[in-house]
Nucleic acid binder design. Structure first.
Length: 168
DNA sequence: AAGACGATCCTG
DNA sequence: AGGATCGTCTTT
């Protein structure tokens, strides 16, 4: 409890990591020094270059670069010119997988998560292992985790049918 | 250089 | 139902 998740937690298949993130505490130390801890309540797994819903399927670019690295880092990107969406990179170098944090307690919706956490471009590539402003801590296991199809990726064909959304 | 679009949210 | 808003990628 109150223990920062170690590298090993993230260095696994995204489909193992994603459901285990449900119930964990996302910790944010704000610029004013205040610290808030939010329970993670909804995530989605994006799994490598084959997953057409995963940005990494577009290839290795300045934007997707961090996903191709080793797990345990932050991947943020701006959507619709308005919201910074938070992702946690998982797996070994080259896996190009990440977990989208869709909801935290009190803040339903990936855009609202980024707004609450005051994310911006500077979080791109941040280490969840050494960062002093964002990380994840262990927590009591949650009783029941539900699954469904991922949201907003109808363009990805068969990949849209994967039950890779996990929530309380 | 210009155009299209998006893992969203808010308003009416 | 439609607009906001801009970085990234694609096309010229």
């Amino acid at each position: 409890m109150n223990t920062r998740l170690p590298p090993e937690f993230f260095l696994r298949d995204v489909l193992d990591v994603a459901p285990e993130l449900i119930g964990k505490k996302l910790v944010r130390c704000f610029p004013d020094g205040s610290i808030e801890k939010y329970m993670i309540t909804e995530v989605e797994a994006y799994r490598g270059i084959e997953d057409l819903a995963c940005h990494a399927s577009k290839g290795r670019t300045p934007r997707t670069e961090v996903m191709f690295g080793e797990g345990g880092t932050v991947y943020v990107y701006l959507i619709y010119g308005q919201y910074w969406l938070l992702n946690l990179v998982t797996g070994s170098e080259g896996d190009a997988s990440a977990v989208l944090i869709r909801c935290i307690e009190g803040f339903p919706g990936p855009g609202r998560v980024g707004r609450e956490l005051q994310l911006d471009k500077s979080f791109y590539g941040e280490s969840l292992i050494t960062s002093q402003r964002i990380w994840v801590e262990d927590a009591e296991p949650v009783p029941e985790i539900r699954t469904s199809k991922r949201i907003g990726i109808e363009y990805s064909g068969e990949w849209a049918d994967k039950l890779w959304r996990f929530y309380l």
